[in-house]
Design a protein around this nucleic acid. Structure first.
Length: 644
RNA sequence: GCGCUCGUAGCUCAGUGGAUAGAGCAUCAGCUUGCGGAGCUGAGGGUCGUAGGUUCGAGUCCUAUCGAGCGCACCA
């Protein structure tokens, strides 16, 4: 079985050097401490060769030699010259070893790449892991905003990267649908207000209610789908709603709306019914928007099911049994490094005197959190974090994921301490849980920050951004094509920067100058290759899906060599991304690969009837470049057009 | 006040402890009787916020400091 490690040029070099060092140690020329991990790096300029190694510098002290002498020793030990991967080794500067490779040896990797097709494969030495990536998870009382877009693009691409290196990655969305949520009730009351208004019934807009356009959208939609109302009202099992059922049933066959069905009796529909229906509609809207963005979840996990199934209760019992929670009055300060003693007010004094008004606390300071957290409030209702405890137990215990990742926005970094504490309080190793925080993305319109805050009635939604980018970048395209283009541009812009950096997204620039967009530069390279392949086939050349080593050995032109080496680097980049989550490097890589191809194209004519063998070899190189570009774009969730 | 994150070219940002700090956009100058010019070549542009420290070597690691953003609920 061929794994990606077998096609890594760097891996081969590393192993050659490692073997040489091992031999030197065995011969007693180096102490055993000199055996350190080998690093292969790019050279700064072609004058320095193809690859460099800093072994002599890093291992000098441990070997008791000066770097130049150590470099000399290693240089003499390395196999090089005709027939070897390494043609020559140079000792340079303070002790770098610079390698020049034999071109035909490099070209021999091309057939391996072609055999792999577009797929990465798991390294045979490691078992695939079951990973869970939770991201976006905004409450079902608002749409997917352009702010959440960064988390959506990042989380989805990270999952793709995990899969590319051979793991199973499940994308998960946690739905905060707890029926006791005050925010959700307020959202339901807002929707209800719009519906009563539409029915010309008296209604007052709730205090601090939700105003955005999407709220009235949800209200409009809620009026249709009468069977859903039947289902919800029946599930309430309340005698009060029984009289409402017949008129709704009747209206279904007449094709009427809820208003026409109930008229003034609309006011008798309980708020909880509005809460369930508006929540369902909001979740569907979120799922639709994310699907448009290329993000499809394996699991929409409902918080309420944790309460209904008793999992919250049992998780809390588990904490208590482990001694990681305790009952104590309100306002108790438990931080170990205490500076400001809080004076209990009168109400606290009453609570302290009355044990029935104690709250259940998570002893999270035991696990490094800066304060203990309330699990169950003094009124007996579970706090939000109680469901989190059950959810974490469900992920790591019940569903047994090897590792859970939680992607959060910059406003949530306060969660790190408490969530890490929850994991440990449940008895799990912290290595099975990782929170990744992405930084703020600020949208500029006409040079000013574009408003996108929830509940200000002026929400900038992800769907708007996709539409806007698609229309301006492809004004003559069909709506479907515009949507794809908008998605491609948006995902690229979100992903081209490190998730650790706060970035500005200048919408005017992204729309006006979309022709100059780097995503088109990369996609154009792919389309150009497809054009060359089409032309070659029209001229009777066959597209090689396989090359022999002898055929590939013709590819010794510097631009061909650079292109092959760049192609071989993708697995290396992907592995790094899986390790440190820096998925933005894929965009950098794709841009570099596209540029390297354009350079090759400029100097190496592919289709040359008088040179059939070379044409075939170059066509094989084109195919490998096309595969690799398409793989990179696929990791980013961006399309690889064959024509533009 | 405590905590997290970030300060790199005019702008937006890359940058595995390594050699002369890079790309895109913007500015300027060039390239085509040939496979897609949405391309290629070149030029200008930098006190890597500041000051110490660690080491053979620091944009990168540590400390301090200045500046910016965000978070510090019996909300979810």
């Amino acid at each position: 079985m061929t794994g990606y490690n077998d096609v890594l040029l760097r891996t081969a070099l590393r192993s050659i050097i490692d073997t040489a060092v091992t031999q030197l140690v065995a011969d007693g020329k180096l102490p055993a401490e000199a055996r350190i991990p080998i690093e292969i790096s790019d050279t700064r300029s072609p004058d320095h060769g193809d690859f460099a190694c800093n072994f002599a510098l890093t291992a000098a002290k441990k070997s008791g030699l000066n770097p130049r002498d150590l470099g000399q020793l290693l240089q003499n030990q390395l196999p090089s010259g005709e027939g070897h991967l390494i043609r020559s080794v140079e000792l340079a500067g303070p002790g770098f070893l610079n390698f020049r490779l034999n071109p035909e040896q490099v070209a021999a990797y091309l057939p391996k790449i072609l055999n792999l097709r577009c797929r990465f494969m798991n390294s045979p030495s490691e078992l695939p892991k079951r990973l869970n990536v939770e991201f976006v998870s905004v409450n079902p009382n608002g749409p997917i905003t352009v702010g959440s877009g960064r988390g959506a693009a990042f989380g989805d691409t990270l999952a793709r990267v995990f899969e590319a290196v051979g793991n199973h990655a499940e994308r998960e969305y946690y739905v905060n649908d707890g029926v006791n949520s005050e925010q959700m009730r307020l959202f339901a009351e807002s929707v209800r207000h719009f519906i009563l208004l539409a029915a010309s019934l008296p209604s007052e807009f709730p205090d601090k209610g939700y105003k955005g356009e999407y709220v009235s959208d949800v209200a409009d939609q809620a009026l249709l789908d009468l069977p859903e109302w039947i289902r919800i009202l029946e599930s309430l099992e309340s005698p009060a709603v029984v009289p409402l059922l017949p008129p709704i049933r009747e209206a279904i066959s007449d094709g009427k709306t809820l208003i026409q069905a109930l008229g003034p009796r609309l006011g008798q529909v309980p708020v909880v019914a509005f809460q369930i229906r508006s929540q369902e509609l909001m979740i569907k809207r979120q799922a639709d928007d994310l699907a448009t963005f290329g993000v499809v979840y394996n699991q929409w996990f409902s918080e309420q099911t944790l309460h209904n199934s008793g999992r919250v209760e049992s998780a809390l019992a588990q904490l208590e049994a482990a001694g990681n929670s305790y009952w104590a009055p309100k306002g108790r300060i438990t931080a170990a490094s205490e500076t400001a003693e809080m004076e209990p007010d009168d109400e606290d004094a009453v609570a302290s005197a009355d044990p029935t008004r104690n709250a259940l606390w998570l002893a999270s300071t035991k696990f490094g959190d800066d304060k203990d957290r309330v699990l169950v409030r003094t009124d007996g209702r579970p706090a939000y974090i109680a469901a989190d405890v059950a959810y974490m137990e469900n992920k790591l215990g019940e569903r047994k994921f090897d590792k859970g990742y939680l992607i959060l926005g910059p406003d949530h970094h306060g969660y790190i301490g408490r969530m890490n504490a929850v994991v440990q309080a449940l008895g799990y190793d912290l290595s099975r849980f990782q929170i990744i925080i992405y930084q703020l993305v600020r949208f500029l319109k006409e040079g000013k920050p574009a408003p996108m805050r929830k509940r200000d009635g002026n929400i900038y939604e992800l769907r708007d951004l996709i539409k806007e980018l698609g229309q301006s970048a492809a004004p003559d395209a069909s709506p479907d094509e515009q949507q794809t283009t908008g998605r491609d541009v948006a995902r690229w812009f979100y992903l081209m920067r490190s998730h650790e950096t706060a970035m500005d997204f200048d919408i005017d620039l992204a729309t006006k100058q979309s022709d100059e967009n780097p995503v088109f530069y990369v996609q154009y390279a792919h389309a150009r290759i497809c054009g060359v392949i089409r032309k070659a086939q029209a001229e009777g050349l066959s597209l090689p899906t396989q090359l022999t080593v002898d055929q590939a050995a013709l590819l010794v032109h510097p631009k061909e060599q650079t292109l092959i080496r760049k192609i071989l680097d993708l697995p290396n980049e992907v592995v790094r991304c899986a390790e440190d989550y820096g998925v933005h490097r894929i965009t950098t890589y794709a841009t570099e690969l596209a540029r390297t191809y354009h350079h090759f194209y400029d100097q190496c004519r592919v289709i040359q009837p008088e040179e059939p063998a070379l044409s075939q070899a170059r066509l094989g190189l084109c195919q490998a470049a096309r595969q690799t570009l398409a793989s990179s774009l696929e990791l980013l969730g961006i399309s690889s057009p064959e024509k533009m």
